[in-house]
Structure formats: structure tokens, C-alpha cells
Design a protein around this nucleic acid. Sequence first.
RNA 1: GCGAAAGUGGCGGAACUGGUAGACGCGCUGGAUUUAGGUUCCAGUGGGUAACCCCGUGAGGGUUCGAGUCCCUCCUUUCGCACCA
Length: 920
Amino acid sequence: MSLWYPSRLSTGPPGPNTPITMQSQYEPSAVEAEAQAFWTDRQAFAVKEDPSRPSYYCLCMFPYPSGRLHMGHVRNYTIGDVITRFLRMQGYNVLQPMGWDAFGLPAENAAMKNGVPPARWTYENIAYMKRQLQSLGFALDWDRELATCQPEYYRWNQWLFLKMLEKGIAYRKTGIVNWDPIDQTVLANEQVIDGRGWRTGALVEKREIPMYYLRITAYAPDLLDALNDMPGWPERVRAMQANWIGRSEGVRLSFPYELQGEQRLLSVFTTRADTIMGVTFVAVAAEHPLATYAAQSNPQLAAFIEECKLGTEQEAEIAQMEKKGMPTGLFVKHPISGEPVPVWVGNYVLMTYGEGAVMGVPAHDERDFAFALKYGLPIKQVIEPAASNAHRRALRDGVAQSNDTVRDPIRPEDRHVLEGGIAKFSVAEWQSWYGEYGVLINSGKYDGLEHAAAIDAIAADLSAKGYGEKHVQWRLRDWGISRQRYWGCPIPLIHCPKCDVVPVPEQDLPVVLPEGLVPDGSGNPLNKTPSFLDCKCPRCGGPARRETDTMDTFVDSSWYFLRFASAKNDKAMVDERANYWSPVNQYIGGIEHAILHLLYARFWTRVMHDMGLVKVKEPFQNLLTQGMVLNDIYSRRTGEGAIEYFNPVDVNVQVDAKGARVGATLNSDGKPVEWEGMRTMSKSKNNGVDPTKLVEQYGADSVRLFMMFKAPPEDTLEWSDDGVEGASRFMRRLWRMVHEHVTAGLVSGKVSGELTDEQRNVRRAAHSTLQKVTDDLGRRRVFNTAIAAVMEFMNTLSKFEDQTPQGRAVRQEALEFVVQMLSPIVPHAGHVLWQALGHTDPLIDHSWPQPDAAALVRDSIDVVIQVNGKLRSQVTVEASATEQQIREAALADATVQKWIEGKPVRKVIVVKGKLVNVVV
RNA sequence: GCGAAAGUGGCGGAACUGGUAGACGCGCUGGAUUUAGGUUCCAGUGGGUAACCCCGUGAGGGUUCGAGUCCCUCCUUUCGCACCA
């Protein structure tokens, strides 16, 4: 239903100077209803593969259907929509799909709270959130919608998992999980609070259970190398991924020992083999076989090991907890000196990284130092650190000469103190040693060698003895995908008492997850569901039991973008259409996914590529990581340490005469509340903003405009109601400007003939604004500066009052530019204003305008003049002025003369078209 | 702890390639319109100073004719750390 021109789009253009009746008031709800109805009726954003046109795949990370859209979603999808609409106007065949990351823990938590099956909760959330998305006017192809909890989707997880199993990419081994002994259930990390189960408060135990892993480590070198060839990704994301994959070159070496009459080896990996003569102990993980052996005859040690096993597996916590250890009483032999080295159990040694054992060199490693100091272990210096940063870097990079002098050596009197046990030296002294490269001392035949040469020599000797070799170690671990939970994709395996683990045959896929179950917190409900559990062994036909573990939800999100491109194919996981659309040209989502999701998707795509399913290997060509949305937090202490949080809309902020914040009070009682700064919107801090209410109050366009204007896409965005108000004010201003113009009669925007100076200036501003906005939206992908440029131009245009036919033509062209430039951001208003300006073609099908080079030409340029680098004056010169002419004009300027009076001019620097610097 | 990033007016930000610091907006101040509030419009708004000018981009050094931008040291804040998604 159209409120303004019921038949405009079918009856052709009005004649020149036809009086126009346009609603004088901007009513966003009516405008948005009309534009959305128009797009829906035409299925304007459903796209087909068309090899004759350049394709563009613009994708935002699909949401978890948590119940309601939050402002982070709105920001994410608005960025994607602006890019989509801009590129569509540039002539691309643009795919922008949407779906739902529908499996996951929150649905189970909701089920426990409300007794509603996760499936129902999820589908209701999807329905609600879909309406919210539609109200924001995103140019989405809803024909390709998918939810990962649908069997039509997850059957292909299962299918590919079985293929991976065949190829050895998927395999079974044991892994450690958090076990709640009261609820008899496995907990996620976020369900463990201070080492206790979130519901039961029971001390959480670690359990080893069989799980399935995907061999992502086999792809580690390729995943790392390819990062160098991904210019469309932010540097920091590539750096984070590279660190995560963590390639490190070093030496794997072994400490021989005798146990129960047998010769064995204790292996460690180190990047600092040059410090090997400084080893004074070896630490092993609590789970290490040597620790287990020693504990058999040592109850104290056994107790300590149990304590370690209770501890966290989380890297962040391990790194920050107190380093504790206990001697095993066992000794191994130093692989070079043959001297006995004590073996300790350390709570900071991870079984899952490397060999589960580390060599301790207290003099040159911070953690080892802390450990040695605490337990009175010897500290032996074996590296003389280089004095200067430059020299240190040179040593590290292997470019230092071996005869480079080492300045500022440790004084000999400091040295001997260290060799006899607990050191009596200052930590400041010692700190200059650790983590540094230098020249070896106290290392026998290796004395005098520098870092790289020392490692070479030591590795060669170890290799000759069979005690070690150079080795490349990766930090990346294989991807454990088993989850002992209900609401996920079933792992398609069957346990047969006779045949062990048997894959579900391909023709029996999908293994459908029963949707009616309600988890109650005591383990996976699938284990109590015989209709799911009981089955026949596909191999022997005997009674068997179905696997009840489900897959990590990162599996679902590792290939959904390929499925969007192969939507609704019930015969295959993906098809030729995926090759038309992929890679995703622009991927947009939160920085919090910088490592895991993006790395898993890169891995999964490579696996599909290697199986010949898709041509693409690297799934995301360009990546934009949008920042978070923050809001103020207001609170009040309510005695007994309890804190009550108040929503910012209920708070009145007091400011001083300059507008600086001086305090805040609660609207309802007028009493002060405390401002705790700005944080991400959350329920617990009561600082959320409901997108639906905002759309009702201001309209989707104002909300979109505010979010794009407030901050660059990658930065955090601070919510402000005043800011949305400002965006709304701008929309009314835009509306009024077009209204005033068109009610005076329509004119053509084709400008020809002689223009006055003012007309030329306005026209130049219009075209240069268009040039800037095109660059900002396209190459730079920043929207706040594009909007600012349009605002600035509108300030110019509002001062232009020329009502001559020529002046009105200039204004018509300018307003058409404004509406077009803003239309990716405020598409509803754009749609209606475009018609108001007399156009019969819908704006979404109109191509993006091109600036006219002739309109951009300037006759004169303002040149800034500095004297000794300080701004002193300004002159206007002809655009064609030579460097010599600019210099003369600058020196002739009266103000400049005053500043250089009596001083000889030493130098004059001329930056063409911009600036002159006179040095006196 | 390790890894990654960011610090510019009262606030969000702009300055893209080393070249006029503070565009644009919010807030604030004064004025016009209005019965009033709101809306709208006009003017002003980094600090110091009577003024000329001086000082100013987290702190301190450096390179340069010229530094928010490049280099070094330090401080603060935010994000990630493998079962939240």
C-alpha cells in the first residue's frame, strides 16, 4: 500500500513542473511499511546464479536464536546490509542470506528452567527474531534460510563426519571433561564457577572419556602459511590465528632413566636447547605416566596429583595460578652431562601440550625461576645476556657475529653465589637473564657459542647419542567435537557388543535427534530414551546401542555459508552453485570469533576441498570484525553487599554548565545512582536496549543511521539515546529538504549551460561528496565518515537559496545524490524520497551515480603558509600555479613578511596544492 | 601469565600517503519562534590570555623543515585463551 503515489511506478514520470503532493511530515512507520511491502511483493532480494554478472557474496555471522535480537546483531546486520545494497547498486549480483545457529547450550538451560523442549524454545525464538530482522528492512534472501537443528541440514554434518572417519581425519581418543559428581553430568567450562558445578555447587572433577577428534593439526602448516596471502583479513586477526596455531622450532630431547630394570626415555620439547646445561630439574604433568608410577609408593605425592587433577584445564587460569610442585623421588640422567636430574610433578605442566613434561632452567625462564625459588632448587646461569637491545635482536635473528663483544657482563662475584642453591641476589639482577639470547657460559664445550650456533651444536650431539633431534612443535591441538549433550547433531555411530564401534550406513542418514525431550541437568536425556538408543548393528544385525554424544556447534557453523549457496538440495551437501558464489567476498562478525570459529571453518572448507566437494579452499576473502555495543551501567548498593542495577532509560544524568557529567539520579525516586562506566549490554547489568522498541519509536532508518554514524565499524560503539534522537532529527531534516524542493515543482537534475559561482560551488561540493562517499563505502568500508560528508554537504545545500531554474536543477541533482548516497544506510526513506523526486524506477534497481570530472575542477587553491612549522597565514593561488609562483606568493604575503622580518630565509618547502613552510 | 588491539575537547569520533589537529554529530551556553514544554531556526563552544600570542592528540625521549601519524621506553584500558556462541 502506497501513501503517496499509488500508481507512480506504473504510470510513468510526471511532466516537468508538475506540482507534487508529498506528506510534509516524516512518518517512519508508514514509510517503512510501504518500502518493505514493495520489496516483499517483488521478492527483490531473492537472487539466482547468473554467470553473466559478477557475483558478490556478503555474509554476516548467523545468530544464535537466543530469543531476541540484541543491538550487536543490529549493528552486524546493518553493516552487511549497507555493503549489500551499495554493491547491488554498483551492478553486482549480491547474495545476502540469513539462517540460525540453532543448536547449543542455552536451549538446554532454558529447558531446565521452563520445562520446554529445546526444539520448541528454539523454533519460537527463530520466529520472533525473524520478524525483528524483517522490521529492520535488511535485503536478505529468505528463500535460502536454514536452521542447523533441522535434519536436512545436520545430516550433512553426519555424512561428512563419516567420510572423515574413513579418511582418518576423524578419530577416537580419550579426552578430559568437567564432571559434576552430583548431577552425574559433563559441564561446559562456563558451567564451572570457581571449580564448582553451577547448579549443584559440587567440586568438579576431571574425567577421561573417549571422544572424537578432527585432525586439524594435519592442516596446521597450510592454515598458517595461507595467512600470509589473505590481504582481506585484518592484520590482528591473522596474527591471533598465527599465534594460536603456534609453530615453534626447537629440539625434542630425551632424558634417559632406568625403571624396573628397563631403559626408558623422558621426552621434552624446548625452544631453548642452548640452555640445556642449565637444567636443574624436570617437571611432568600430574597425568604423566612417570607421576602415576611414583605415586604408587608415595601417598603424599598421590594426594598432590589428585589435587592437580581437580584443577582447571583452562590456559588462562593455569598461567595465573600459583606454581606448585612435589618431587617424585625419581631421577633421570642429563642427556649430555649424564648427571642425575630430579623429576618433579608440576601443576603448571599441561599433559595436552607437547610431551607433558618440561625441562626446568630456572636461570633463564621466568616460570622455572619462580618454581626453583619456591622449592630451593639450584639456579645455574648458562647464558651471558647481550647488553643492548640491538645486539639482542641481532642474536635472535641470527645476524650477530660470534666475535661481537658482549657489554655489561654479570659481575663474577654475582655469579658464584648462584651455583650453590638458593640464590642471594636481587630479582632485578636475575631478570636481565631470562628469556634472553646471549652467549653460552658454564656449558663446557659449548662455552662462547651464541644462540643459534649453540642449538645446532647441541642438537647434533643429542642426535648422535639418540637423545634428541630438531623438531617443529605446534601449539594447535586436534579439534575435539564430542559433547555429552542432547541439543546437538548426533554423532552417527553405533556401539555393538560384538563389532565395537560401527558407522551408521550412508543410506540410514540422518540419525534424527528426537525433538521432544527436556533435559533436567542430570546427564544427556538421550541416554534415557530407548527409542533413540536401541538399534541393530549394521554389521552383524545384533542388538546395539546408538552413540549419544552430539557434535560441537562449531561443526554446524563451519560450512553453513556453503549450504546457503546450495540451498535446499536434498541429494547432496553442496552443489555447483557453491562454486558460483564462494568464496564469501565479505564476511562480517564479532572479533570474539577471530580464532576458533574462523579457524574451524577454514579447516572444514579445506577438508571439503580435498574431497572434491568444492573448489574453494579459503572460505572468507574479506573479513570485517565489528566492535561491540556498549551502554552505561548504573547501580546502587542495597546494603549487605548486594547491588541493584538500573536501566539507563530510567536514569537522569546531571551535567555542569559545560556539559560534563557530574552525577546521576534515578527518575523514580530522584536519589543518586552510581555510574560504573560502559560495558557490553547484558541482562545482569540491566543495560540492554530493545531493538523493537527503538524501531517503533524512531523507525528502522534512524536506528540504522545512528549505528553506522556513531563509530567506525571495527570500534566499540557506545549507545546513546541522544544520539538516536540526533539521527532521527537528521531524517526529518532530510525529509523536509526534499519536501520543500518538490512542492515547488519537479525539475530535471540534468545541469547544463553557464552556472553562477555559487551554483558551481554547490555542484562541485555535490560531486566531491559523491566521490568521497563512494570511496568510503567501497574501498574504505567506513560509514561514519561517509554520513558525516553527506551531513556536511547538506549544511552547504541548506544555505543555497537560488530559486532560478538553473539553481533548482543544481538542487535537484544534489538531492538525488544525497538520497542515493544514503540509501544503503536508510533504504526505506531512500525508496520513498526517490519517488518523491520524480523517479519511476525503484531506487534499489538504480545504478550508483558517477561524479562528473568537469564539475570537480577548481580554479583556485588555498595554500597554507607556515613559518618554522607554525601556521601563520594563507594565500589563494591559481590552480595552475607553478611551485615557483606559489613560493613567491607566500613570501610576498604581509603576515609572512612580518614573521620573517630581519631573519635570513634558510629554506622554503612547497607542498603542491597544500602548504608552504618557510624556514628562517 | 601469554597473545592481540586501543588511548585525540564535556562525550562519540575526524584528520586515508609525515603537511591547516578537533570535520560531522551529541551535550552545553546565549538568542529567535511558541501560552508553556517539545519541535524548528540563528550564533557560540579545546585550554590559558585583556590582547598579541602561547600551550595542547595517555607519559617520557628521539628522527624530521614539519609528528596524532614514524622509532624507542613506560603507563592505562579492552578483547581472546580451546565445552558460551
